[in-house]
Amino acid sequence: MSARGVVLAGVGGQGVVLASAVLAEAALQSGFEVKQSEVHGMAQRGGAVVSHIRYGDTVASPIVPLATADVLAGFEWAEALRWLPYLAPGGALVVDARRIVPPGACRDHRRWGVPYPPLDPTSIAGRTGAVVLIDATGIAGTLGNVKAANSVVMGAVSRFLDLSDAAWEKAIARFVPPRTVDLNIEAFHAGQQAETLDPADIPELGLDPLPERHYHIDVNEAWCKDCGICPSICPEFCLALDDAHRLVVVDEEACTGCRLCEVLCPDFAIRIVTPVGAQGGAR
């Protein structure tokens, strides 16, 4: 048998590494040559995590070559998209409908926003074979622990691999915490049975960029005592104390109109003004 390739993709903390260890072990138990490759360290800190598993009679590269993965398992929608090029034409995409939006996404702030992609399988039409969109996190939650979502995903993945349930179960038992073996095996089987969701049933995140609004930070210099509270609190660092310890507006463009400076100014010196005609209540 030529080497089969599976790519597991998710976010640090989702159990991608554990799931890939289970798959590799299941393949080992089934008598295959196995290579499984992942990256540790900084990337795991809430960043994107990917693991490659290849197994077969012989395996050379530990990395799945592009466009050759039999299965791409996305533990989260955006990560599934990120690694989609690894999926072979006709390969199966298994993806948890969960969406983990990084703080940097959809930021209202001017400097930190990268939008989160809409959960829309039609956007990748023609690039995959089967698409199995499941509510793995929800299923795991129903079973009692959302952390078992990775086992649910692997159950769905198992539909496209030729490994026996016994091998899977043995592998799960070897790697998951002892107290959670039964739960994870149950989750695994739930994943095997999980229904594919209709994307239309999945609510929008509602995280599309909001309309830009502009504000004027009106500082009454005669009243301001340069106490430093507003620079210490402004979420956007619009305000600062200069070298002479005088309050200055350094970045009015970045103001989101949150008015923390206004409400926390002990000297009544700041007023956030929305220009007339702008949205959100001029005054």
């Binding site: 976010v11 640090g12 900084m42 990337a43 795991q44 800190r45 809430g46 960043g47 994107a48 592009l66 466009a67 955006a78 990560e79 998209l81 990120r82 690694w83 989609l84 090029p85 939006v101 990084p102 703080p103 940097g104 996404a105 990268v114 939008p115 989160y116 992609p117 956007s123 990748i124 690039r127």
Partner: peptide
Amino acid sequence: PRSSAPTPPPTVVRPPLLC
């Protein structure tokens, strides 16, 4: 040559974060 490498669909940047 490989068939032209499939371009990934646009997705979110996910830099690592402190826990």
